[in-house]
Amino acid sequence: MTHTEFRRVYQTDPEGVWAAPGRVNLIGEHTDYNDGLVMPLALPHTTTAAVTRRTDGLLRLHTANEPSTPVAELPVADLEPGAVTGWTAYPAGVVWALRGAGHPITGADIHYDSTVPVGAGLSSSAALEIVTALALSDLHELNLPGWQLARLCQRAENVFVGAPTGIMDQTAAACCQPGHALYLDTRDLSQRQIPFDLAAEGLRLLVIDTRVEHAHSDGAYGDRRRGCEQAAADLDVVALRDIPYGELHTALGRLADEEQRRLVRHVVTENHRVAQVVAHLEAGRTRAIGPLLTAGHASLRDDFRVSCAELDLAVDTALSCGALGARMTGGGFGGSAIALVEEATADKVSEAVTAAFAAAGHLPPRVFTAVPSAGARRLV
């Protein structure tokens, strides 16, 4: 289908087709831009890109998700931050970042198709960026490793698009492996693949998309990041990850501003929770991570204050129906929650959340099972 659509739009065949996944974050929220620890896993939902190189300096972009929208035509020499808006800013930013790093990208025809829900906190933007970067890296024989693609795509999103995101989403899209969660240190990008086969243990990880859309370029996300950076400066550390968990109380005592105290408390305790989850999983105590997920939600809700009524309802309802743990996932202000459940209770939890949303007058949530899947790869 991708080949057919590419041929219909551009009257030629693509040189190849690539895919990059969305992600769900098991634990480690708002820690990545604080040089902290995270643990995402790739979803089976992907963004695919059929691509052919051009040599005339023109970048042409089209998506099957908006089939009536004309092909966007962008001269690569004119790409600069703020010059492109809408969804095309993400792939345009990747081309800009690659060229800025000295890679001679001279244009391309690209057709996208995506099954990653947009605005659901599942990193649709990172999937779009990484699939573009990997395709162009392959076609131009740049041989860029996954972590380097992630860095370039983060620069595209931070500088070109203007969204102050951390490095987790791009690294997850580039580097995750099937059947594993990615334990990532965002300071040095060191990573370990942690086995995460829930089905074998009679468990499921449900994703509950509240259908409340969020946007990382909105001010509230940037406010949290700036608050963390100022708190780190006031505490005379490079980043909040440098505050040991055992010294949290002392650090909080040095801060007079209550907002800063809340931000610091969340980041330090969340890094500690990531380390605890890794220890449990490596010891085969998968069910023991449930309370840590729930504690993470309380911290995001009360200290970081990035939850919303729909996310809280999803979490509270799942827990009341027997979920082992539940929390919001992603940047917050909408998006999705996750719930770790026994296989036998998965349908009950899903139905209860759907009923609770209906009773509250919310849009029906989308509920599906997260299956740890592959990172970015070439398909054809």
Rank of each mutant, 00 (worst) to 15 (best):
H249M: 12
T286M: 02
L292I: 10
A298W: 08
L293R: 06
C308V: 06
E259T: 13
R285M: 09
D316T: 14
R265K: 11
V274P: 06
D242V: 01
N271T: 15
G296A: 15
R301K: 08
R305C: 07
C308G: 06
V264C: 01
V278K: 11
Q276E: 09
G284S: 08
E258D: 14
N271L: 05
L313D: 05
D302S: 04
A309G: 02
Q276K: 12
R301S: 10
L292R: 07
S307I: 11
L300K: 05
T269H: 06
G246I: 08
R262E: 04
A279R: 10
A295R: 11
T250Y: 14
H280W: 09
R254I: 12
L313F: 07
R285N: 11
I289S: 05
D257C: 03
I289G: 04
L255D: 02
V264E: 04
Q260S: 12
H297A: 09
V267R: 00
R265W: 15
L311I: 13
L313V: 10
H297P: 07
T286Q: 04
G253T: 04
D316P: 02
V264Y: 01
E258F: 13
H249N: 13
E270F: 00
A283K: 01
V268T: 05
R265V: 09
R265F: 03
S307L: 06
L263D: 08
A275D: 06
R265D: 03
G246E: 05
A256F: 11
A283G: 15
A314N: 06
A295L: 15
E270C: 14
V267K: 01
V264G: 02
A279S: 14
Y245H: 13
L252C: 03
L281P: 04
L300G: 04
R305S: 12
H272S: 15
P244A: 02
H249W: 15
H266I: 06
V315T: 13
R305V: 11
V267F: 03
A295H: 08
V267Y: 00
A298G: 15
V277I: 12
D242H: 11
P244G: 03
T317M: 07
V274N: 07
R254W: 11
T286G: 00
P291N: 09
L263I: 14
V274S: 00
Y245M: 13
E310M: 05
G253N: 08
S299T: 05
E270S: 02
V264P: 10
R305A: 12
E247P: 01
D257S: 12
E247V: 05
R305F: 09
R254M: 15
F304C: 07
V315E: 02
A288T: 08
D257M: 02
Q260V: 09
E258Y: 15
E258N: 15
R265M: 14
R262M: 09
G246W: 05
A256K: 14
L263R: 10
V315L: 07
A279F: 10
I289D: 03
